[in-house]
Simulated assay, not measured.
Amino acid sequence: MPPLPLCPCSSGQRYKQCCAPFHKGEAEAPDAERLMRSRYSAFAWREAAYLWKTLHPDHPMRARPEADVVRELRAFAQAHQYPGLVVMGHQPPDTTGLARVLFFAKVFEKGKDQSFVERSDFRHDGTGWRYLDGVLKLPRELKVPPESLTLETFPVD
Rank of each mutant, 00 (worst) to 15 (best):
A77N: 02
D31T: 11
R74L: 13
A48F: 04
V107C: 12
L98G: 00
D58R: 14
R130C: 15
A27C: 02
L51E: 01
F43L: 15
E26M: 07
P65V: 05
L132D: 05
P3N: 11
T54K: 04
Q17L: 10
R14P: 00
Q13L: 15
Q114I: 00
E141G: 10
A67R: 14
M36S: 04
A48P: 03
L55G: 09
S148P: 01
R119Y: 01
G97N: 12
E141N: 11
P92R: 14
M1T: 12
S120W: 00
H80E: 07
L149C: 02
F103D: 03
L132S: 08
Y82N: 03
P3K: 13
F108C: 07
Y40N: 02
A49L: 10
K110T: 08
T95D: 13
P57K: 09
D68F: 04
M1P: 13
S11T: 12
Q78V: 02
L35R: 02
S148W: 05
S41V: 11
C18Q: 03
E72W: 07
P93H: 07
V144K: 08
G89F: 00
V135K: 13
K16M: 07
D68L: 13
V87H: 05
A77Y: 06
A105K: 00
L4E: 15
C9R: 02
T95W: 02
V86D: 04
F154E: 01
A77W: 05
L151F: 11
P65Q: 10
Y40V: 01
T96F: 01
E72L: 13
W129E: 00
V69P: 01
L73M: 14
F22L: 12
L132C: 06
K24W: 01
V156I: 10
F104K: 06
H23T: 06
E109S: 14
T95V: 10
